[in-house]
Design a protein around this nucleic acid. Structure first.
Lengths: 193, 193
DNA sequence: CTACGTTTGGAATATTCGTTCCGAATAATT
DNA sequence: AATTATTCGGAACGAATATTCCAAACGTAG
């Protein structure tokens, strides 16, 4: 039967999410996408419908990759508090190590698109809920293991931790260096008591 | 002598910063700017050079307005901690009351432009430093007045507070409602002890 | 009231944008 | 090898983009 596709959808979405990450939705042209992905114009429209749809799929790819890397942390043999510490350390390291990466695609999408595209805001919303649930689980685990005594509900703290995470991603775009980000994490995690 | 300008530069910058705030730099066309500001095409290029320059001036206008509103808080007869509480309450109220405002222009600019425009990142950086200094002052004031006993330096906490502030502005774009934002503020301010 | 210098509206430009389209290339099945 | 369904390269399209330009409108100063 037919000729088989000559590109790998995952690779394409990875490249697309990278360039959307760097330049935003409105800042990225189709030509740049073609160059970054190696796709031909027709293949892009055949397989991804249009730019907007590709953006959505790139966002979901990015979210999945982020979910996966959090799951790796989740499966480490650490207690809940250590998992939180580990994750934040990892985020800070990534932010300072990849300065050209332009922060976080999810945060950038929230800033650029959430008020103009329901589907985008849905992905962003989902991501927020997922991360917060993970945090809440880790907090409950830490509390159950007596490594942490919380004076408020895990849900309160998981909102707070997610807020801290979002803040870090903005601050890394605002001139904050590793020392300052590390310091913010320290103060924030000290609040868990 | 010559015909006098028929527009008010401040009003123009306010309108421009509003539309850049709503749609971003790349998402806003010249035609939309003309409609929003009431300017004619030639007046825009005569008085503001080009779109990019207008964006920069709009950013600075926005920063100045933000500075002014923080100065108002600063001049209230409140102690340092109360000023912090007041400001955060005000920010949360504004975010939930103006959902179409698209969060915060400074945060959105950081996400969209900081890696692509040195002048933009300079404004963002300045803003960060100014706000943190204000926070540090309030914290010192609170500490001097014995309303607060800090276990770390005011500078540490001012970074943390600024991080919390940035986080709020992203979370309000990610589906968080007033309850959740208020809760985040509560947890964050409880960390000052 | 005239004359000058500036502002201003809108036509014009060249470029870039996202998208469509079609014929040639392709590879799995018959 | 012939058939077939699909991919793919690139030309082509119209709409939208940022910017330039000029003649007309205009207010101020003499």
């Amino acid at each position: 039967m037919p000729k088989v596709k000559q590109f790998n959808k995952e690779k394409v979405l990875e490249a697309a999410s990278t360039i959307f990450h760097q330049k935003g939705y409105n800042g990225t042209s189709i030509d740049e996408i073609l160059k970054a992905t190696g796709l031909s114009r027709s293949s892009l429209y055949d397989s991804f419908q249009d730019k907007h749809n590709l953006y959505l799929q790139s966002l979901e790819f990015y979210k999945k990759a982020s979910d996966d890397s959090m799951a790796v942390v989740d499966q480490k043999s650490l207690n809940g508090l250590e998992k939180i510490e580990y994750l934040f350390k990892e985020v800070v390291n990534h932010l300072v190590k990849h300065p050209d990466d332009n922060g976080c695609l999810m945060v950038n999408a929230a800033a650029e698109m959430s008020k103009h595209c329901d589907k985008t805001s849905q992905v962003i919303c989902n991501n927020k809920e997922n991360v917060q649930e993970l945090f809440a689980g880790w907090l409950a685990e830490a509390q159950a293991g007596k490594v942490l005594v919380l004076s408020k509900s895990p849900k309160s703290y998981s909102s707070f931790l997610f807020n801290t995470l979002c803040g870090l991603k903005v601050m890394s775009q605002s001139g904050a260096g590793k020392n300052e980000l590390t310091n913010v994490v320290k103060v924030a995690l000290d609040a868990l008591n």
